[in-house]
Amino acid sequence: MEALREAVAKLTVYVHPSNAADVHRAVARQLSALLFSYEDRFDGVLLAHEARIESGGPREEVRVKAKILNGLVPYFGVQVHANLLLFSPQPDMILEGKVEVLGNESIHAIVLGVFSVAIMSDDIDEKFKFKRRGDGGKFVSRSDKQHVIRRGTMIRFSVKRVDTEMNCHITGSLIPPHTGSMLWLSVHDAEYASEINSSKRRSRDISIKIEQNEQEHRVLKNEDSTMTSERPHKSRKRSIEER
């Protein structure tokens, strides 16, 4: 998928002194707090991360840079090298999503199980005709009745606009070539069919990374809900700085 990209970043993560006994876990917690939300500094949504703390000796010896944040207790800065997996959709990119709801005027889908997509009637190719039959209706191609888009269909679409204020809400289009039902395209579109085999392995590896980070995110969130934090209120955007 075009919108997925990997990046390497040097970050300074600020850790509360109460977490000094397990800095590695504290850093992971700070990074996990950024998962699945749009971050300007990364120009995308963080989906997964692998962080390595800079150290001057054994693994347990972590090099830190003392820094006092105004009005707060003296957090200490930990220098981190992070490999990031980002979702950064841009206009004219080709993405894939699963149809959740559709009607005569629009198709609504979801990408990577997280990001919402709206394809309005003006952006649905005229070759598709909406038929209100079965479970919620379906779009059927006038040129090939086997080309059907219904609830649950995986579709390939072009990006028109991205609203980062709504956490990468996407406006899409089914008018450009090589868009439509992925199942139909895999059989009838030679260009798309040739892409499938080359992208299968990478897609599987990415799915595993995202799932692992989702599990970590849920575990840390559950732990936070059961703990009474002694930490003063502080914006999470100041907890991590990119160098």
Score class of each variant (00 low, 15 high):
Asp205Met: 14
Lys129Met: 07
Val62Ala: 05
His169Glu: 12
Asp205Lys: 15
His188Gln: 12
Val187Met: 14
Asn104Gly: 05
Ile119His: 01
Ser181Cys: 08
His49Ser: 08
Val73Trp: 05
Ile94Gln: 05
Gly172Lys: 04
His233Glu: 09
Asn167Tyr: 02
Asp224Thr: 03
Lys145Phe: 09
Ile240Asp: 00
Leu86Phe: 04
Gly71Trp: 02
Asp135Ala: 08
Leu174Asp: 00
Lys234Cys: 06
His24Leu: 12
Arg202Lys: 10
Leu34His: 05
Met93Ala: 06
Phe128Leu: 02
Glu216Arg: 15
His178Trp: 06
Asn197Ile: 09
Glu241Val: 14
Val78Ala: 03
Val78Trp: 00
Asp92Ala: 11
Ser198Phe: 09
Val15Lys: 01
Ala109Val: 05
Leu84Val: 08
Ala21Ser: 15
Ser186Met: 05
Met154Pro: 04
Ile196Trp: 05
Lys127Thr: 11
Val219Glu: 09
Ser225Trp: 00
Leu183Thr: 14
Phe36Trp: 02
Lys160Ser: 08
His169Tyr: 11
Ser32Gln: 04
Thr12Trp: 04
Gln215Ala: 14
Asp22Trp: 02
Gly180Lys: 01
Leu185Pro: 02
His49Lys: 02
Thr228His: 08
Glu2Asn: 12
Val101Tyr: 12
Ala193Met: 07
Leu46Cys: 05
Met182Val: 13
Ile119Trp: 00
Ile206Thr: 09
Ile119Ala: 03
Ala20His: 06
Pro74Thr: 09
Thr171Tyr: 11
Leu102Asn: 01
Met166Glu: 11
Phe87Tyr: 06
Arg133Ser: 09
Lys160Val: 10
Arg238Asp: 10
Val117Leu: 04
Ala82Met: 08
Ser194Val: 13
Arg204Tyr: 15
Leu174Thr: 00
Val8Lys: 13
Lys209His: 07
Ile119Asp: 00
Ile107His: 01
Ile155Cys: 03
Gln90Lys: 13
Val162Thr: 03
Leu47Arg: 03
Glu195Arg: 12
Ile206Lys: 02
Glu96Gln: 13
Arg25Val: 10
Gln79Trp: 09
Ala48Asp: 01
Val101Thr: 15
Leu34Cys: 07
His16Tyr: 06
Gln212Arg: 10
Phe139Gln: 01
Arg59Met: 13
Asp43Met: 12
Tyr192Lys: 00
Cys168Thr: 03
Asn213Thr: 06
Phe157Ser: 02
Asp163Arg: 07
Gly97Pro: 04
Thr179Tyr: 03
Val114Phe: 08
Ala28Asp: 12
Lys221Leu: 09
Ile208Gln: 06
Ser194Pro: 01
Ala7Pro: 01
Ile155Trp: 02
His188Gly: 04
Glu2Arg: 09
Tyr14Ser: 07
Glu165Met: 15
Val111Ile: 15
Ala51Val: 08
Lys234Asp: 12
Ser225Phe: 00
Glu211Lys: 14
Pro176Gly: 04
Leu84Phe: 06
Asp92Ile: 14
Pro176Arg: 02
Lys237Asn: 11
Glu61Asn: 13
Gly71Arg: 15
